[in-house]
């Protein structure tokens, strides 16, 4: 963690110590990321092939190479609190091209999993969870679409959980097993009241 200097707040911020200190490093973080992602970010040699393959990089400060580096060094806080973590479109172009055969996309996914454990997660992800809990679908049916389906001679609801809602309780069981709905509701409430 950055060293505090006891200055007035504005100066403390302006002159914050930017050096990397050993105590920022959490080797456990490297191992956990590797276990979840099933890939090898510790082998990164920082060639930048990933960033150059990334559709998000040219329009943001998101640098996937930096996240792989943070994972290698165990810079847990820096990685998980960086809002750029959520700009990966999971296109896997970096994974296809990485010369060290790392899957940087899966490193990002693992870090997002770890961020969620700290309640760091954009709300839209949780709303998908809530939708699926209720309907079984992330993008549920609506009246306009039902009318269109009828016009096509189709059943207004597809033969999914929409037409067979008895299957929803199985889905709810799985989400409750991981306490996902509970946590999603809690976090959404905290953010949106």
């Amino acid at each position: 963690m950055a060293r505090t200097k006891g200055y007035p707040e504005a100066l403390e911020k302006k002159l914050a110590d930017t050096r990397l200190y050993e105590d920022e490093r959490h080797p456990e973080f490297t191992k956990t990321v590797e276990k979840i992602s099933m890939t090898i970010p510790h082998m990164c040699f920082q060639c930048g092939t990933c960033t150059a393959s990334c559709p998000s990089a040219p329009r943001s400060s998101y640098r996937i190479r930096k996240f792989v580096r943070r994972s290698l060094l165990g810079l847990e806080d820096e990685a998980l609190t960086d809002p750029d973590l959520w700009l990966c479109t999971t296109c896997y172009s970096c994974t296809d091209r990485c010369p060290r055969d790392i899957a940087p996309t899966d490193v990002i996914m693992a870090m997002r999993n770890l961020a969620f454990k700290r309640d760091i997660i954009p709300v839209n992800f949780l709303k998908t969870v809530q939708a699926i809990y209720t309907t079984g679908h992330g993008v549920p049916n609506n009246d306009v679409n039902r009318a269109a389906r009828k016009k096509l001679g189709m059943h207004p609801d597809p033969p999914t959980t929409h037409r067979h809602p008895q299957y929803i309780k199985g889905i709810q069981y799985i989400l409750d097993y991981f306490e996902l709905k509970k946590n999603a509701d809690r976090i959404v409430k905290e953010r949106e009241g």
Binding site: T90, N113, T128, I132, H137, T160, T161
Partner: peptide
């Protein structure tokens, strides 16, 4: 019968 969202790999995989 009874299929659901796959579920969305980006949303669920991230969580």
């Amino acid at each position: 019968e009874g299929g659901s969202c796959c579920p969305a790999p980006g949303a669920f995989g991230s969580i």
